[in-house]
Design a protein around this nucleic acid. Structure first.
Lengths: 197, 197
DNA sequence: AAATGAATAAAATAAAAATTTATTCATTTT
DNA sequence: AAAATGAATAAATTTTTATTTTATTCATTT
């Protein structure tokens, strides 16, 4: 196995192993066995168990993010791109069983409330993308004049909550209904007259 | 002390004690000392420590709820009542230090995601109130025709999230800004044209 | 009837021993 | 020489036991 080159093979093995029983109950032997190598050999590719876990999770999260990005690029108007961003993320997770199991086993990966998000660098990019989309929509007069920074944070929080509810705590159907209803609420609002006295 | 009559004095003492160090690190002696009685005497008023804690928390939650209810009754239009409901809940918590500390020490009291909410009977009433308000607003043509059940659940979830962020995890100012921004988003929506292609 | 302090039972904490698993390293394989 | 291994060591986890604290009961007093 060529160093650097096939490290992704190791990430895939680690993802499979870790998503079975979580970080703590997975041994490096489990991971190594997944690709038929000795545990000690993993140290040629990573600094240790903790780092391997972090790298594996990052690998899975970035894959998720890149799929969403691809879908957004295919969408048209800024409204469509906003909705696509939300929907695509949910749909992807529905298919990636390993990542979903990992999120269930380790809620800290995608934390609702946390002083420090251990994968902040990944989520940061999502919030930034969202912020750009908001700015563009506001500039084009298609979105109301909300503050992009606060709104992006608010929407990302709501999005996180829905993801967790839909895939980690809830039965899928109810979670998806709630997701669609909330998306509708956020895009169109509750009030008929927009500026109530 | 007259049984049944002054049991609220005990709840107040228990609230003070529990909100200092949480359920586990608070002894019944701490609670009893708060009103200068022997710990063994508490058993004339409650079945034990666990039940006392539950009753005390319920007591504090119901007080919170009743204040919000009172504020809603003073409000006018259905839009105003909706906004009052949200704002009043936040403002009350800002003042009730003991309840706030309790929520910080024991997140299970007001859980974001939980199979079973131990104080569901209290929250149930809040969701029901919200649902009624939505129905009324929709019937009067002041709210868009969303599904009241799902929308109530969605809004209550968002509300919970904001409460937790604002008072349990965040600095107050940032939490309140986020709260107002999100309230605006939920009532007025993000898109200028309501039914985007 | 309400309250208490001493007695008992249950639970939590701390310390020690045993086991498992991560990591290193000298040696072998390719 | 790079990649891989199995045996050796170190660190971490789990189990067990002993110790202390705290909840709960109960006979007695206020």
């Amino acid at each position: 196995m060529k160093k650097k080159e096939d490290i992704e093979k190791i990430y895939a093995a680690a993802l499979a192993a870790f998503s079975r029983h979580g970080f703590k109950k997975t041994t490096l032997e489990d991971v190594a066995a997944e690709i038929g190598m000795a545990a000690s050999n993993l140290y040629l590719y990573t600094r240790g168990k903790k780092e391997l876990y972090r790298e594996t999770v990052t690998f899975a999260l970035l894959r998720w993010q890149s799929r969403v990005l691809r879908d957004i690029e295919a969408a048209g108007s800024v409204e469509e791109r906003f909705i696509t961003m939300c929907r695509s993320a949910v749909l992807y997770l529905e298919k990636d069983d390993a990542l979903r199991r990992l999120l269930i086993l380790d809620p800290d990966i995608f934390p609702m409330f946390a002083e420090k998000d251990p994968y902040e660098h990944v989520n940061q990019a999502s919030v930034a993308l969202l912020k750009d989309l908001l700015r563009e929509g506001i500039a084009a007069g298609r979105f109301r004049g909300v503050d992009p920074d606060t709104a992006a944070e608010a929407i990302f929080s709501i999005y996180k909550m829905l993801i967790i509810r839909a895939y980690i705590k809830m039965e899928k159907t109810a979670g998806l209904t709630l997701f669609e209803q909330t998306l509708d609420l956020v895009t169109s609002g509750l009030f008929v007259d927009r500026r109530p006295g």
